[in-house]
Design a protein around this nucleic acid. Structure first.
Length: 210
DNA sequence: ACTTTTTGACCGGAA
DNA sequence: CTTCCGGTCAAAAAG
């Protein structure tokens, strides 16, 4: 029925600026010096992984194509590059013992490297994949706490908004020190963190029947 | 120099 | 058994 298909899958890194340009010369140098030899354990089963391709295997000229693709899917719709979403309408749907799913979560802070997310915990990204069910790339995060097994999957739209978050497990440690900066009027971080706390609590008994 | 992010490859379970 | 796909690993790059 939908005649408009989303082809945004070709460029999952749409929300990322072209910071790779800074070291383009480096990339070239790497290209000439192809000497990546993996050291394998002697005696073991010699599990030699394929030599990982260089970070920038494609020439920068390809970026133009990526940009075009991103804009194509946008044709007709209003570009919400700004933080238009202000409704913190999070739907915590916990259908598993240790799994909480959030929908339509706006991102209060969109810095370059925010370890401190809006939930108040430290997360380290360890992977990103394009799943079939979703048109947006899914990022995999792990709690940086040593003994914390909590992981979370975050699906971010091309606009940088968070489409869905899936928490796996529960934190066995208190929240890290929140950088409570002297916010004048917009204390978004603290508010959001509080909201999440409430959501996490409700997950303990918010699923029945499913 | 260190930590985190990026990203292609690899692994294992499900279909 | 084979294929597909989600999740994880790990090297390299970025900050």
């Amino acid at each position: 029925m939908q005649s408009q298909e989303k082809i945004t899958t070709v460029k999952p890194v749409a929300s990322r600026p072209f910071s790779s340009f800074s070291s383009f010369s480096k990339l070239l140098k790497d290209f000439t010096t192809t000497g990546s030899t993996r050291i394998t354990s002697p005696g073991e089963t010699a599990i030699v992984r394929r030599p990982k391709a260089r970070r920038f295997a494609s020439p920068p000229s390809d970026l133009s194509t990526g940009l075009t693709a991103t804009m194509l899917q946008d044709g007709g719709s209003d570009t919400t590059h700004e933080q238009m979403v202000v409704d913190t309408e999070q739907q915590a749907v916990s259908c598993d013992e240790h799994q909480t799913v959030f929908h339509n979560i706006n991102k209060p802070i969109h810095g370059a490297r925010n370890r401190l997310s809006y939930d108040g915990y430290n997360w380290r990204k360890y992977g990103q994949k394009q799943v079939k069910g979703s048109e947006f790339p899914r990022s995999y995060y792990k709690c940086t706490y040593p003994t914390c097994p909590v992981k979370r999957k975050v699906e971010t739209t091309l606009d940088g908004q968070i489409a869905e978050i899936v928490y796996n497990g529960e934190h066995n440690h208190p929240k890290p020190h929140l950088p409570k900066k002297p916010v004048s009027s917009t204390g978004t971080e603290v508010v959001i963190a509080d909201v999440y706390d409430a959501g996490a609590e409700s997950q303990l008994g918010g699923c029945n029947g499913l």
